[in-house]
Simulated scan of single mutants.
Amino acid sequence: MKKIIFIGAGYMAEALIQGWIKKEVLTPQEIYVINRSDKERLQFLTQTYGIHSEFDESTYQQADIIILAMKPKDAVEAMQALQPKLAAHTTILSVLAGTSIETITHYLGDRPVARVMPNTSATIGMSASGIAFNEQISATQRTQFLQLLAAIGEVIEVEEDQLHAVTALSGSGPAYIYYLMEAFERVGTQVGLSKDTVRLLMTQTLAGTAEMLKQSVEEPTVLRRKVTSPGGTTEAGINALELHQFQAAIEACIKEAEARSRSLAKHS
């Protein structure tokens, strides 16, 4: 039986825990979680998922994988406290935005480290994850991590520097889509539909569009033009988006998020 310890009990940790248990990749008995101060949060996770939140120092020595999932601002302090407890064989998986492998090995020693940027859709097995490895990761460990992430969605191996872009795109991506849905619901009610009707129509529209992009060999530009009849309603809407510089806003959004990830890395 594996032993996996989460250091941190936030929403990303919960998304991974829920996704892995739901997909039966891990059992609750294999998962341990610790949080610096929020005991109510730990109680919620243990009661909801049946995982462990109370364990002694020997558990760290037996751990196969330590998952760094604390707030980035708490990372250095947490790693300093963690370092003396680790066994030589323990592998580190970090979900911390902006905290480099170099920083992790500085505090936790020269050991196998993987950095992954999943998103909260891991909860339902639909994450989009980018992962990077250091040179100490063995072929077996690489396969193990790829299988863990593939169980909760799509995973792609990237260079570590590319994780800044992954963070900005798919890591933060769900928030952008939820923000878009907020706008759809607000305007949909303004033009006479109920919020529930807008939610139903637009969630299906988003799901269908995503599936079309996955199945089609055509570029998004071509697919868009097929929906946009000259002089029609879609063209009128696209014209309004161009007037309000929609694509420029998206570009600014991603670049700002990517720059923030790089800034966090410099100060970690």
Score class of each variant (00 low, 15 high):
residue 211 E to P: 01
residue 223 L to W: 02
residue 132 A to F: 09
residue 265 A to Y: 00
residue 187 V to F: 11
residue 92 I to E: 02
residue 61 Q to C: 02
residue 37 S to G: 13
residue 266 K to I: 00
residue 98 G to C: 03
residue 187 V to S: 09
residue 145 F to K: 03
residue 70 M to P: 06
residue 171 G to T: 02
residue 189 T to D: 04
residue 202 M to A: 06
residue 257 A to V: 05
residue 265 A to G: 10
residue 192 G to L: 05
residue 43 Q to T: 06
residue 70 M to Q: 14
residue 192 G to M: 12
residue 255 K to H: 15
residue 129 S to D: 00
residue 86 L to K: 08
residue 67 I to H: 04
residue 221 T to Y: 07
residue 1 M to S: 09
residue 235 E to F: 02
residue 11 Y to S: 14
residue 213 L to F: 14
residue 113 V to R: 13
residue 96 L to E: 10
residue 56 D to N: 09
residue 235 E to Q: 15
residue 35 N to K: 03
residue 38 D to S: 13
residue 39 K to Y: 00
residue 80 Q to I: 15
residue 26 L to G: 00
residue 96 L to F: 11
residue 136 Q to W: 10
residue 203 T to H: 13
residue 199 R to E: 12
residue 48 T to V: 01
residue 114 A to S: 15
residue 249 A to V: 07
residue 189 T to A: 14
residue 164 H to R: 08
residue 236 A to E: 11
residue 181 M to A: 09
residue 99 T to K: 15
residue 162 Q to H: 09
residue 91 T to N: 07
residue 65 I to E: 01
residue 65 I to Y: 13
residue 165 A to H: 09
residue 145 F to T: 06
residue 143 T to S: 13
residue 118 P to T: 06
residue 187 V to G: 08
residue 6 F to N: 03
residue 239 N to R: 14
residue 218 E to Y: 15
residue 101 I to L: 15
residue 240 A to N: 12
residue 139 A to W: 00
residue 105 T to N: 14
residue 262 R to T: 03
residue 193 L to S: 03
residue 232 G to M: 04
residue 67 I to C: 04
residue 58 S to R: 10
residue 50 G to T: 08
residue 72 P to S: 07
residue 170 S to F: 08
residue 20 W to C: 02
residue 129 S to V: 07
residue 91 T to A: 15
residue 112 P to E: 11
residue 140 T to C: 00
residue 116 V to P: 09
residue 17 I to H: 05
residue 99 T to V: 15
residue 154 E to Q: 06
residue 157 E to F: 07
residue 225 R to T: 09
residue 5 I to F: 02
residue 151 A to P: 01
residue 156 I to M: 05
residue 170 S to L: 06
residue 120 T to M: 14
residue 255 K to M: 13
residue 98 G to L: 02
residue 221 T to I: 11
residue 248 A to V: 04
residue 214 K to A: 14
residue 41 R to N: 05
residue 221 T to D: 14
residue 34 I to C: 07
residue 198 V to R: 00
residue 184 F to V: 04
residue 145 F to L: 02
residue 38 D to G: 01
residue 134 N to L: 03
residue 50 G to N: 03
residue 118 P to N: 05
residue 53 S to A: 12
residue 215 Q to V: 05
residue 27 T to C: 03
residue 266 K to G: 13
residue 140 T to L: 04
residue 12 M to A: 08
residue 212 M to Y: 06
